[in-house]
Each structure stands twice: as structure tokens, then as C-alpha cells.
Nucleic acid binder design. Sequence first.
DNA 1: CGTTGCCCTGACGTCGGCGTCAAGGCTTAC
DNA 2: GTAAGCCTTGACGCCGACGTCAGGGCAACG
Lengths: 128, 128
Amino acid sequence: MRIGELAARAGTTTRTLRYYESRGLLPARRGSNGYRTYDEDDLKLLRQIRTLQDIGFDLEETRPFVECLRAGHPEGDACPASLAVYRRKLDELDALIGELQTVRAQIGVRLATAGGEPPLCELGGREL
Amino acid sequence: MRIGELAARAGTTTRTLRYYESRGLLPARRGSNGYRTYDEDDLKLLRQIRTLQDIGFDLEETRPFVECLRAGHPEGDACPASLAVYRRKLDELDALIGELQTVRAQIGVRLATAGGEPPLCELGGREL
DNA sequence: CGTTGCCCTGACGTCGGCGTCAAGGCTTAC
DNA sequence: GTAAGCCTTGACGCCGACGTCAGGGCAACG
């Protein structure tokens, strides 16, 4: 299949596919007319990339998964390198979620105490 | 004081201050030689901006706080517009944290089930 | 008078993941 | 033959918050 069909079947754009190719992530064979040619396996690779991207993985982080599939494994996360990315991502997420919760709490307090609160009040309910 | 000193006292750079000025956030008076001149109030405004920025507020979102201080309030969040930003931020944070937790859970499951698990196993401990 | 150290404006670079346009080639249907 | 609809490469645009460089001015010290 050609680039337009692959893009459509993966729910993305031709621009995106050419970008992935430029990054060496999803190289394409070429037909006699110079057109890019893809097969069902490429679709599977592309869907793996897109799934991870949608979840919030950087493009580079999807590379181990793609290489894992290309190595013949039925799942992109069957390889150690992929699992390592999972673990790094878990740590990152935990750190980020923790920070965000801290910030959330800070704002919550500021929202509760800001706006002319009485100096001697101990604890109050929501004012709004 | 001049731009370099203000930057140093706020722990930022002159470039940042000029950028804020270009955005209309922190205008400066000018001395006879064309140099920007700031006072202690400007330092207070700048610290308000930086504090919010560090927490993750967009630059535009700090504007109500700055205007609130400039209006004479001792705290930047003493004004309704600032509180509205707080509330919007809380909602954004809640949504984002929720998404991240969902992703975290997904990855956790994939990490647990990936890597050649036996098809009939019910529940296993950590393998690494 | 020269050097150092501030300051000025203007403008291009950065990062990621593409969007969008330009200018042209191939193929197929009418 | 010609128009439509694919495809090609190349290159600039976008977003936010600045970093960094170029080229020049002012001030103070020795």
C-alpha cells in the first residue's frame, strides 16, 4: 500500500509518516516510480508508535518497541529495552504526578486562605 | 536599581526581564541614559511572576496576580481574577493528574503482563 | 586614554512534532 | 488530451519562554 492509505488506516497523516521516516523510525521501500510502499507489518509498527505517542511517550521512546516488533516479537513490549522504557516512564509519571499533587495542594490552600480571610480563624469550609 | 541587579535579586536573567516587558507584564521606567530602572515594588511583582511560573502557570496566567499587586493589594491573589485563575488551574490539574494516573495504571499492567507471561497464570509477584 | 563592565536594540536559534505551502511528476479515468 | 487525485522533495511556520550573539553606547576607574 502507499503512504496515503497507510496514514488513513492508522488515523494519521502522510506528513507524520514522512517525519517518522526522516527520524529513521519507519523507513519505507520504494516502488519503481519512487513512491513509498508499505505492508501490513508497517501498519502494525505504525500503530505501535501511535499508541505510545497518544499515551504520552516521546517519539524516541517508541523506538525500542518498534525494533522489538521488527525483530519478530508479536508484541513491542516483549523486549528488555521496551520494559526499561516502561519502568523509566513509570518513575517519570510518579515524579510528575507527585509534583502536580503538591502544586494542587498549594493552590487549594491559597484558594482557601486568600481573599480577605480573618486572621484568627482556625479552619473554615468552602466559601464558594 | 537597574536590570542586572533586579534579575540577580530575583534569581533570573536580564533577558527574561526584557521578555516580560515586551509582553507588557513588567514595564520599566527609563533613566536619562535610557537604562531601565526598577524599584522594590517591581521586585515584588517579579517574584510573584516567578513563583507562579515555577509552579507551572503560563506567563499570561500570572497577569491577574501582577495587576492585583499593582492595584495596591498586599497579595497577588487577593483579587477575583486571580482566584478565577486558581480555580481554572485546579480543574486543569485534576484533569491532568487523572489522565496521568490512568496512563500510569496502563503501563503498570503492561509491565506486569508483558515479557512472556504464562497464559494461564492468575496472579504473579514482581519478576524483577 | 584605554579597559572593564554594565547597559541598549534587533534578530536569529532552541525544542518536538508535525502543519502547510510550493512546484512539480505519475497514473488513471473520461 | 486533460483533469483529478495521488505522489515526490524542500522549506518555512507554529508554540512558549526564553538563550545567545552582533554591534554599539555609557560610566567609572586607573
